[in-house]
Amino acid sequence: MIRDLSPVDLTSAAGVAAASGRTDVRVLELPLGDLAAGTAVPPGPLTWLRAAAPGPGEAFPGDEALAALPAAGVIGMTLEFDARPEAPALIAFLVRMTSLGLPLEWGGPVADLPCELLVHLAPPSHGDAAADAWRAAHRYGLCYWRRGNGFAAVQDLRAEPGARYVIHEPDVLDLFHRLADPLDVTALPAGDRASLADLLDAELAVEIGGSAVRLPYRLRRWPVPVIDF
């Protein structure tokens, strides 16, 4: 017998939460600090994560921990916090999540952030007027990079007329990769300072409160179809 079940909305936290009593979907609470420290999502049902932002002194999860989520059945995440995390760390997390491509719900006041530089990242679902503007301007693929052998190719269409860059100078490329996590710029050697200036100038990185982070995300999934017929 093939059993019928009431269709569950798999695209939102509320949808998954509403499907109580199902063995194939669940909401799971997992603080991001724990995920960063090595706690894994136990594989099983399709899972919506309610993820509390890391506390002071705790790190956001990195590439490896996040990459393991889809295979474990995670279909979306809600980022929860009372006090908004520090901007560079939050931006770095948004860059990783946009690259991963999992639906992300989060929100709050963002007017103090350089939102016009962040429109390519997973937008807040609620908040102030700046949050609304971010959500309205967001599109998939507005600012991304791709890995080459010895270079990174960046495509930036956040603003007209748009720009394409190839980062191939070893020093700049090295810094570009180190900026995947917030980098304390106050003690940077002169060479890195110069490279950082180039990246800031091109708006491929942003510096907030003495910490810099890169902005394009690594494009992992091309849309289907990749050509707009």
Binding site: L10, L46, P70, V74, I75, G76, L100, G101, L102, P103, R139, Y140, G141, L142, L157, E160, P161, G162, R164, L219, R220, R221, W222, P223, V224, V226, I227, D228
Partner: peptide
């Protein structure tokens, strides 16, 4: 196989589309 990271129904903007 259910895959929430699949991107459909949208195109990557190209310079020609934007400009």
């Amino acid at each position: 196989e259910h895959d929430p990271t699949l991107v459909k129904g949208t195109a990557i903007p190209t310079p020609a589309m934007v400009g």
